[in-house]
């Protein structure tokens, strides 16, 4: 039973993970274990290996060394428990399909070979579209959606996967304020229903507000723990290698001016 499993095993346990593109190491000896029901932000400068961490955890790219366990088992045995939101730019939005159809792809993993999605899948997909406020756009061709709407469609697809552990690769990148709000309330809802969500995030200003835990990454794991313990000026300075400029306000409150572009 998955319920029992989750009590014993962590949703995600990574030990000694190393990844290299050609000879250059992108991740070196990363180990951590996440607690169930948390929102976790993965923070680090460009080229720190944030997306790579997610892709390696999902088994999308080969790893040099290390082990990834999802609820105590290798991730390819736990596909049904894993949901994934890739970067929006990773697909061609001119593909001949509509929003509802994309969301239904979230059900493909549950369908098995050859079987086509039917009315039940359609119903689930509609429900997920409503949850992200996109029900009115179900039959819209995906190239006619705005960037924020496309991102919501991707989130709805992940919801349709009905997973327990979610990986999201920069869901907030290039979205409008309304979408950002919609996404964050969705993340809160996922958390309330006991899901674990790991989010690659760029905007340092919102980290404290959004995430329970943060994982500071720069090729090596810098720090991992509860946000109010780990998300400190010293740790950030170390992670970003002094490429950040801070504006101190009174106490320890930080107002961050990130020199990073999105990317």
């Amino acid at each position: 039973m998955p319920e029992k499993n989750s009590a014993i095993h962590a949703p995600l346990q990574i030990t000694g993970l190393s990844v290299a593109y050609q000879k250059k190491p992108v991740l070196r000896n990363v180990s951590f274990e996440v607690t169930e029901g948390e929102l976790i932000g993965v923070i680090g400068p460009n080229g720190a290996g944030k997306s790579t961490l997610i892709k390696a955890a999902l088994g999308l790219i080969p790893r040099l060394a290390g082990e990834v366990k999802v609820y105590g088992k290798p991730c390819n045995q736990q596909r049904q428990l894993i949901g994934y939101v890739p970067q929006r730019e990773s697909v061609d939005w001119d593909f001949p399909t509509n929003a509802l159809d994309v969301v239904m792809m979230g059900r493909y993993g549950h369908l098995g070979w050859f079987r086509r999605p039917g009315s039940k899948e359609k119903e689930i997909a509609m429900e997920c579209l409503s949850k992200v406020g996109m029900a009115d756009y179900a039959t819209r061709q995906i190239s006619q959606l705005s960037g924020g709407q496309q991102q919501r469609v991707f989130l709805a697809r992940a919801l349709a996967q009905d997973a327990k552990l979610y990986f999201m690769d920069e869901p907030f990148a290039g979205v409008d304020a309304a979408t950002e709000k919609a996404i964050i309330s969705l993340l809160q809802e996922l958390k309330r229903s006991g899901k674990t969500v790991i989010v690659v995030h760029h905007d340092l200003a919102t980290v404290k507000e959004y995430f329970d835990s943060v994982l500071l990454l720069n090729v090596e794991l810098q720090e991992f723990g509860l946000t109010n313990e780990v998300f400190t000026r010293a740790n950030l300075q170390r992670t970003y290698g002094g490429r950040l400029s801070f504006l101190d306000r009174q106490d320890d409150e930080l107002l961050l001016l990130s020199g990073q572009g999105k990317g």
Partner: peptide, 9 residues
């Protein structure tokens, strides 16, 4: 459409 997602599931 999305080979990365296909691999993910």
């Amino acid at each position: 459409f999305d080979p990365g997602f296909a691999r993910g599931i």
